[in-house]
Computed example of a mutant assay.
Amino acid sequence: MDSARPVNPLADLLGVDPESLTSLIATLRDRGETVATAESLTAGLVAAALTSVPGASAVVRGGLVVYATQLKTDLAGVAADALAEHGAVHPLIAEQLAAGARTTCRSSWGIGLTGVAGPDPQDGVAPGVVHLAVAWGGGTSVRTIEVSGNRHQVRAAAARAAFDLLSAQLAEPVTA
């Protein structure tokens, strides 16, 4: 076993490269930035995976588990009219969750996730549909993925997609 490779059973369980998680935390630390989450279908998995990295306390501000629809409004500031119009599983809701995580936790970056893990549809949305977003001071990036598989596979894929989206945004050049 290579002793230089980070050991991270949670990352392994989610199918995330432990080195990429460690690198993500290091990038945020090196930039003096922080991150927070507002999670529905992943119910805290993203925050748990981020904090599984030693030294994460320097950059992870916190996370909101907003599994119940009303908590999306109460804790993450999602607009009640947006929920009424679109339902809880929609790209706009992911965007507002990310912005809400950033605002509520006073972080540089916010990650928001909503979707249907299954096995049954929710509000007419099929299992495996996931909307995720990353918000920062300069905007928001939203992505929708469709995942085949059981609840664990959908939730793990959602977490991986969140890390990928945050990493992609961190790699973008900063514009004034």
Score class of each variant (00 low, 15 high):
126 A>S: 12
125 V>G: 05
145 I>T: 06
171 A>K: 12
135 A>M: 12
33 E>D: 10
109 W>D: 02
74 D>G: 04
57 S>N: 10
63 G>K: 14
160 R>W: 01
10 L>Y: 09
158 A>R: 08
134 V>T: 13
31 R>F: 00
117 A>K: 01
176 A>F: 04
128 G>I: 11
150 N>H: 14
60 V>Y: 13
12 D>V: 12
152 H>F: 13
3 S>T: 15
5 R>V: 10
138 G>R: 15
159 A>Y: 07
53 V>T: 08
102 R>V: 05
25 I>V: 15
168 A>W: 06
132 L>G: 05
77 G>Y: 12
158 A>W: 04
30 D>I: 05
95 E>L: 08
168 A>H: 08
164 D>N: 03
153 Q>T: 10
137 G>R: 14
72 K>P: 12
168 A>C: 03
60 V>W: 11
108 S>M: 03
77 G>P: 01
8 N>G: 05
25 I>S: 03
73 T>N: 09
90 H>F: 02
149 G>D: 11
84 A>L: 04
72 K>Q: 05
120 D>Y: 02
108 S>F: 01
172 E>C: 09
82 A>V: 15
30 D>Q: 14
167 S>Y: 10
74 D>Y: 11
133 A>L: 07
140 T>K: 04
137 G>N: 09
166 L>D: 06
34 T>C: 13
166 L>K: 04
71 L>D: 13
84 A>G: 05
84 A>C: 01
132 L>W: 08
93 I>D: 00
57 S>C: 07
4 A>P: 00
75 L>W: 13
171 A>T: 14
106 R>S: 13
49 A>H: 07
164 D>L: 05
64 L>W: 11
44 G>M: 08
63 G>H: 12
88 A>S: 07
1 M>R: 08
1 M>I: 00
139 G>H: 13
147 V>R: 08
109 W>S: 04
50 L>E: 10
36 A>R: 06
3 S>D: 07
113 L>S: 04
8 N>D: 14
101 A>H: 05
141 S>D: 15
175 T>Q: 12
51 T>F: 09
30 D>C: 09
103 T>P: 00
48 A>P: 07
117 A>F: 03
157 A>N: 07
90 H>V: 00
96 Q>L: 07
34 T>P: 11
16 V>I: 14
156 A>R: 05
71 L>Y: 12
14 L>H: 10
47 A>Y: 02
47 A>H: 06
55 G>D: 06
56 A>K: 06
70 Q>I: 10
171 A>W: 11
92 L>V: 14
139 G>V: 10
113 L>I: 15
163 F>D: 02
36 A>N: 10
123 D>L: 04
45 L>P: 04
29 R>H: 15
4 A>C: 01
60 V>S: 02
61 R>E: 15
70 Q>D: 15
78 V>K: 02
11 A>C: 14
152 H>Y: 04
5 R>I: 07
124 G>I: 02
167 S>R: 13
12 D>C: 08
48 A>I: 04
